[in-house]
Amino acid sequence: MSFFAVFGNPIKHSKSAEIYALFANEIGISKGYDLKLVSQDNFHYLLYDFFKLGGLGANITSPFKENAYFLCNQLTERAEKSRSVNTIKKLKNGVLLGDNTDGIGFISDLKRLNWIDNDNISDTNKSTVINILLIGAGGASKGIVPVLLTTIEKCHINIVNRTFSKAQVLTSYYQEIGYKNVSCMPLCELYYDTSKYSLIINATTSSMYSAILKIPSFLITPVTKCYDLFYQKQDTSFISWCKKNGSNYCADGLGMLVGQAAHAFLLWHNLFPSIDPVLNHLRSTF
Protein backbone atom coordinates (compact mmCIF):
# COMPACT_ATOMS: atom_id res chain seq x y z
CA MET A 1 0.00 0.00 0.00
CA SER A 2 0.95 3.65 -0.30
CA PHE A 3 1.96 5.40 2.90
CA PHE A 4 0.40 8.76 1.92
CA ALA A 5 -2.94 9.70 0.39
CA VAL A 6 -5.46 12.47 -0.18
CA PHE A 7 -9.10 12.00 0.86
CA GLY A 8 -11.90 13.93 -0.81
CA ASN A 9 -14.97 13.97 -3.05
CA PRO A 10 -14.59 14.58 -5.92
CA ILE A 11 -10.99 13.44 -6.08
CA LYS A 12 -10.20 12.40 -9.66
CA HIS A 13 -9.15 15.94 -10.59
CA SER A 14 -6.72 16.22 -7.66
CA LYS A 15 -3.10 17.13 -8.40
CA SER A 16 -1.93 16.11 -4.92
CA ALA A 17 -0.38 12.79 -6.03
CA GLU A 18 1.52 14.49 -8.85
CA ILE A 19 2.76 17.23 -6.53
CA TYR A 20 3.85 14.72 -3.89
CA ALA A 21 5.69 12.64 -6.51
CA LEU A 22 7.61 15.70 -7.72
CA PHE A 23 8.53 16.68 -4.15
CA ALA A 24 9.53 13.11 -3.30
CA ASN A 25 11.68 12.80 -6.41
CA GLU A 26 13.56 15.97 -5.47
CA ILE A 27 14.18 14.80 -1.89
CA GLY A 28 14.79 11.15 -2.80
CA ILE A 29 11.80 9.52 -1.12
CA SER A 30 10.11 6.52 -2.74
CA LYS A 31 6.94 6.10 -0.63
CA GLY A 32 3.76 6.09 -2.75
CA TYR A 33 0.70 8.34 -2.66
CA ASP A 34 -2.95 7.44 -3.43
CA LEU A 35 -6.20 9.23 -4.18
CA LYS A 36 -9.07 8.16 -1.89
CA LEU A 37 -12.63 8.84 -2.97
CA VAL A 38 -14.77 8.92 0.16
CA SER A 39 -18.27 9.95 1.23
CA GLN A 40 -19.75 11.51 4.34
CA ASP A 41 -20.84 8.01 5.35
CA ASN A 42 -17.48 6.25 5.08
CA PHE A 43 -14.83 8.99 5.48
CA HIS A 44 -14.38 8.30 9.19
CA TYR A 45 -13.92 4.55 8.71
CA LEU A 46 -11.67 4.72 5.63
CA LEU A 47 -9.39 7.32 7.18
CA TYR A 48 -8.89 5.28 10.34
CA ASP A 49 -8.40 2.09 8.29
CA PHE A 50 -5.73 3.83 6.21
CA PHE A 51 -3.69 4.68 9.29
CA LYS A 52 -4.39 1.33 10.96
CA LEU A 53 -2.97 -0.46 7.91
CA GLY A 54 0.28 1.52 7.91
CA GLY A 55 -0.56 4.96 6.50
CA LEU A 56 1.78 7.71 7.66
CA GLY A 57 0.23 10.90 6.32
CA ALA A 58 -2.98 12.14 4.74
CA ASN A 59 -4.15 15.25 2.96
CA ILE A 60 -7.80 16.16 3.40
CA THR A 61 -9.65 18.14 0.77
CA SER A 62 -13.21 19.33 0.22
CA PRO A 63 -15.63 18.75 1.81
CA PHE A 64 -14.04 16.88 4.75
CA LYS A 65 -11.66 19.39 6.39
CA GLU A 66 -14.04 20.18 9.21
CA ASN A 67 -14.81 16.47 9.71
CA ALA A 68 -11.09 15.71 9.96
CA TYR A 69 -10.71 18.31 12.71
CA PHE A 70 -12.80 16.13 15.03
CA LEU A 71 -11.02 12.87 14.10
CA CYS A 72 -7.52 13.90 15.23
CA ASN A 73 -6.10 13.14 18.67
CA GLN A 74 -3.86 16.22 18.67
CA LEU A 75 -3.96 19.54 16.80
CA THR A 76 -1.43 22.18 15.83
CA GLU A 77 -2.20 25.77 16.77
CA ARG A 78 -3.05 26.51 13.13
CA ALA A 79 -5.60 23.72 13.01
CA GLU A 80 -7.04 24.65 16.39
CA LYS A 81 -7.63 28.26 15.37
CA SER A 82 -9.07 27.39 11.96
CA ARG A 83 -11.18 24.51 13.30
CA SER A 84 -10.35 22.55 10.17
CA VAL A 85 -7.65 20.07 9.15
CA ASN A 86 -6.14 19.50 5.71
CA THR A 87 -3.08 17.48 6.79
CA ILE A 88 -2.72 14.57 9.20
CA LYS A 89 0.48 12.91 10.40
CA LYS A 90 0.61 9.66 12.32
CA LEU A 91 3.14 10.10 15.12
CA LYS A 92 5.36 7.28 16.38
CA ASN A 93 3.07 6.71 19.37
CA GLY A 94 0.09 6.26 17.04
CA VAL A 95 -1.42 9.67 17.74
CA LEU A 96 -3.02 11.39 14.74
CA LEU A 97 -1.74 14.98 14.57
CA GLY A 98 -3.98 17.36 12.62
CA ASP A 99 -2.63 20.49 10.94
CA ASN A 100 -3.95 23.12 8.55
CA THR A 101 -1.40 24.25 5.97
CA ASP A 102 -3.83 26.22 3.80
CA GLY A 103 -3.10 29.54 5.47
CA ILE A 104 0.68 29.24 5.43
CA GLY A 105 0.48 27.99 1.84
CA PHE A 106 -1.54 31.08 0.94
CA ILE A 107 0.94 33.41 2.65
CA SER A 108 3.82 31.62 0.93
CA ASP A 109 2.21 32.33 -2.44
CA LEU A 110 1.61 36.00 -1.60
CA LYS A 111 5.33 36.24 -0.82
CA ARG A 112 6.23 34.44 -4.05
CA LEU A 113 4.12 36.98 -5.94
CA ASN A 114 5.87 39.81 -4.06
CA TRP A 115 2.48 40.96 -2.80
CA ILE A 116 3.77 40.91 0.76
CA ASP A 117 6.60 43.28 1.61
CA ASN A 118 8.04 43.15 5.15
CA ASP A 119 4.97 41.30 6.43
CA ASN A 120 2.62 43.81 4.88
CA ILE A 121 0.64 44.00 1.66
CA SER A 122 2.65 46.04 -0.83
CA ASP A 123 0.39 49.06 -1.23
CA THR A 124 1.19 52.25 -3.09
CA ASN A 125 -1.29 54.06 -0.82
CA LYS A 126 0.71 53.01 2.27
CA SER A 127 -2.50 52.93 4.30
CA THR A 128 -2.26 52.82 8.08
CA VAL A 129 -4.62 49.83 8.04
CA ILE A 130 -4.52 47.29 5.23
CA ASN A 131 -8.11 46.38 4.33
CA ILE A 132 -8.74 42.86 3.03
CA LEU A 133 -12.05 41.72 1.56
CA LEU A 134 -12.68 37.99 1.96
CA ILE A 135 -15.57 36.65 -0.12
CA GLY A 136 -16.81 33.36 1.31
CA ALA A 137 -17.15 31.94 4.82
CA GLY A 138 -16.60 28.23 4.22
CA GLY A 139 -13.75 25.85 4.98
CA ALA A 140 -11.31 27.62 2.65
CA SER A 141 -11.76 30.88 4.54
CA LYS A 142 -11.30 29.22 7.92
CA GLY A 143 -7.83 28.07 6.94
CA ILE A 144 -6.51 31.45 5.83
CA VAL A 145 -8.10 33.97 8.22
CA PRO A 146 -5.93 33.35 11.33
CA VAL A 147 -2.69 33.26 9.32
CA LEU A 148 -3.55 36.49 7.52
CA LEU A 149 -4.34 38.21 10.81
CA THR A 150 -1.11 37.10 12.47
CA THR A 151 1.18 37.62 9.46
CA ILE A 152 0.13 40.91 7.91
CA GLU A 153 0.77 43.91 10.12
CA LYS A 154 -2.22 46.17 10.84
CA CYS A 155 -4.66 44.41 8.56
CA HIS A 156 -8.42 44.32 8.85
CA ILE A 157 -10.47 41.55 7.23
CA ASN A 158 -14.06 42.13 6.15
CA ILE A 159 -15.94 38.89 5.40
CA VAL A 160 -18.91 38.77 3.07
CA ASN A 161 -20.89 35.68 2.14
CA ARG A 162 -24.04 34.88 0.18
CA THR A 163 -25.55 33.57 3.43
CA PHE A 164 -24.82 36.39 5.85
CA SER A 165 -25.37 34.25 8.97
CA LYS A 166 -22.35 32.10 8.06
CA ALA A 167 -20.15 35.20 7.84
CA GLN A 168 -21.50 36.30 11.23
CA VAL A 169 -20.69 32.94 12.82
CA LEU A 170 -17.14 32.95 11.45
CA THR A 171 -16.55 36.57 12.49
CA SER A 172 -17.90 35.98 15.99
CA TYR A 173 -15.64 32.97 16.45
CA TYR A 174 -12.47 34.86 15.52
CA GLN A 175 -13.43 37.83 17.67
CA GLU A 176 -14.04 35.48 20.61
CA ILE A 177 -10.53 34.01 20.35
CA GLY A 178 -8.95 37.46 20.30
CA TYR A 179 -8.93 38.63 16.68
CA LYS A 180 -10.75 41.97 16.93
CA ASN A 181 -9.66 43.18 13.48
CA VAL A 182 -12.19 41.05 11.60
CA SER A 183 -15.75 42.04 10.69
CA CYS A 184 -18.52 41.11 8.30
CA MET A 185 -21.35 42.70 6.36
CA PRO A 186 -24.20 41.54 4.10
CA LEU A 187 -23.08 41.12 0.50
CA CYS A 188 -25.48 43.82 -0.69
CA GLU A 189 -23.89 46.42 1.62
CA LEU A 190 -20.69 46.31 -0.40
CA TYR A 191 -22.41 48.70 -2.79
CA TYR A 192 -22.30 51.32 -0.02
CA ASP A 193 -18.87 50.39 1.32
CA THR A 194 -16.31 53.18 1.15
CA SER A 195 -13.35 51.03 2.26
CA LYS A 196 -10.38 50.86 -0.07
CA TYR A 197 -9.32 47.22 -0.26
CA SER A 198 -5.70 46.36 -0.95
CA LEU A 199 -6.46 42.65 -1.31
CA ILE A 200 -9.66 40.91 -2.44
CA ILE A 201 -9.85 37.14 -2.01
CA ASN A 202 -12.42 34.92 -3.67
CA ALA A 203 -12.83 31.91 -1.38
CA THR A 204 -16.12 30.78 -2.92
CA THR A 205 -16.68 28.07 -5.53
CA SER A 206 -18.07 30.60 -8.04
CA SER A 207 -15.18 30.20 -10.49
CA MET A 208 -15.67 26.45 -10.51
CA TYR A 209 -18.98 27.13 -12.25
CA SER A 210 -17.75 30.17 -14.28
CA ALA A 211 -20.09 32.38 -12.28
CA ILE A 212 -19.56 36.11 -11.74
CA LEU A 213 -19.70 37.32 -8.16
CA LYS A 214 -22.22 40.05 -7.42
CA ILE A 215 -19.82 42.62 -6.01
CA PRO A 216 -19.45 46.25 -7.14
CA SER A 217 -16.82 46.97 -9.76
CA PHE A 218 -15.75 50.20 -8.03
CA LEU A 219 -13.92 48.07 -5.45
CA ILE A 220 -11.34 47.25 -8.12
CA THR A 221 -8.52 49.71 -8.88
CA PRO A 222 -5.30 49.26 -10.88
CA VAL A 223 -3.40 48.47 -7.66
CA THR A 224 -6.01 46.19 -6.05
CA LYS A 225 -4.59 42.72 -5.64
CA CYS A 226 -7.15 40.04 -6.53
CA TYR A 227 -6.67 36.38 -5.60
CA ASP A 228 -8.92 33.45 -6.53
CA LEU A 229 -8.41 30.29 -4.45
CA PHE A 230 -9.73 28.31 -7.43
CA TYR A 231 -7.39 27.60 -10.38
CA GLN A 232 -7.60 26.42 -13.97
CA LYS A 233 -5.66 26.66 -17.24
CA GLN A 234 -7.27 29.90 -18.39
CA ASP A 235 -8.13 32.87 -16.20
CA THR A 236 -10.93 32.02 -13.79
CA SER A 237 -14.19 33.93 -14.11
CA PHE A 238 -13.25 35.98 -11.04
CA ILE A 239 -9.82 36.90 -12.39
CA SER A 240 -11.27 37.77 -15.81
CA TRP A 241 -13.79 40.06 -14.12
CA CYS A 242 -11.09 41.73 -11.99
CA LYS A 243 -8.86 42.34 -15.01
CA LYS A 244 -11.81 43.71 -16.99
CA ASN A 245 -12.44 46.20 -14.19
CA GLY A 246 -8.86 47.39 -14.05
CA SER A 247 -6.77 45.29 -11.67
CA ASN A 248 -3.15 44.80 -12.73
CA TYR A 249 -2.48 42.24 -10.00
CA CYS A 250 -4.37 38.95 -10.29
CA ALA A 251 -3.48 35.38 -9.32
CA ASP A 252 -5.23 32.04 -9.02
CA GLY A 253 -4.86 29.40 -6.32
CA LEU A 254 -2.38 27.01 -7.97
CA GLY A 255 0.50 28.60 -6.08
CA MET A 256 -1.39 28.20 -2.82
CA LEU A 257 -2.10 24.55 -3.67
CA VAL A 258 1.61 23.82 -4.15
CA GLY A 259 2.53 25.93 -1.12
CA GLN A 260 0.20 24.13 1.26
CA ALA A 261 1.38 20.78 -0.13
CA ALA A 262 5.00 21.77 0.53
CA HIS A 263 4.18 22.57 4.16
CA ALA A 264 2.36 19.24 4.49
CA PHE A 265 5.46 17.52 3.08
CA LEU A 266 7.53 19.37 5.69
CA LEU A 267 5.27 18.09 8.48
CA TRP A 268 5.61 14.50 7.27
CA HIS A 269 9.30 14.40 6.35
CA ASN A 270 10.95 17.37 8.17
CA LEU A 271 12.22 18.56 4.79
CA PHE A 272 10.91 21.51 2.79
CA PRO A 273 10.78 20.90 -0.98
CA SER A 274 11.19 23.46 -3.77
CA ILE A 275 7.92 25.11 -4.82
CA ASP A 276 8.80 26.96 -8.05
CA PRO A 277 9.85 23.92 -10.17
CA VAL A 278 6.64 22.09 -9.27
CA LEU A 279 4.47 25.13 -9.92
CA ASN A 280 6.14 25.70 -13.30
CA HIS A 281 5.67 22.03 -14.20
CA LEU A 282 1.97 22.10 -13.35
CA ARG A 283 1.44 25.30 -15.36
CA SER A 284 3.13 23.73 -18.39
CA THR A 285 1.06 20.55 -18.25
CA PHE A 286 -2.43 22.06 -17.91
Rank of each mutant, 00 (worst) to 15 (best):
F4S: 03
F4A: 01
A5G: 04
K12R: 12
A17H: 06
A17F: 01
N25I: 02
N25T: 12
E26T: 12
E26G: 04
I27G: 00
I29Y: 11
I29F: 08
G32Q: 11
S39D: 03
N42W: 02
F43E: 05
F43G: 04
F43D: 02
N59Y: 09
T61R: 07
N67V: 15
F70C: 00
F70V: 01
T76G: 04
A79V: 00
A79P: 00
S84D: 02
K92D: 14
L96A: 06
L97Q: 12
G98W: 01
N100E: 03
D102Q: 07
G103W: 00
F106R: 07
N114A: 12
N114G: 12
I121L: 14
D123C: 13
D123T: 07
D123M: 07
K126W: 09
K126N: 15
S127I: 02
T128F: 11
T128K: 13
T128N: 13
L134I: 00
L134N: 02
G136W: 08
A140Y: 02
A140S: 13
K142R: 15
G143N: 06
P146Q: 08
V147M: 06
F164A: 10
K166M: 03
A167E: 09
Y174R: 00
C184A: 15
E189T: 10
L190K: 11
Y191E: 14
Y191G: 06
Y192H: 15
D193H: 05
S195V: 05
K196Y: 08
L199D: 07
L199P: 02
S207N: 06
K214N: 14
K214S: 14
S217F: 09
T224V: 12
K225S: 10
L229F: 10
Y231L: 09
S240E: 06
K243E: 09
K244L: 14
N248C: 12
C250T: 15
D252W: 10
L254V: 11
G255V: 05
V258I: 14
G259V: 09
G259F: 05
A261P: 02
A264I: 07
N270F: 09
F272Y: 15
P273L: 12
P277R: 10
P277V: 07
V278W: 08
N280S: 11
S284K: 15
S284L: 14
F286W: 15
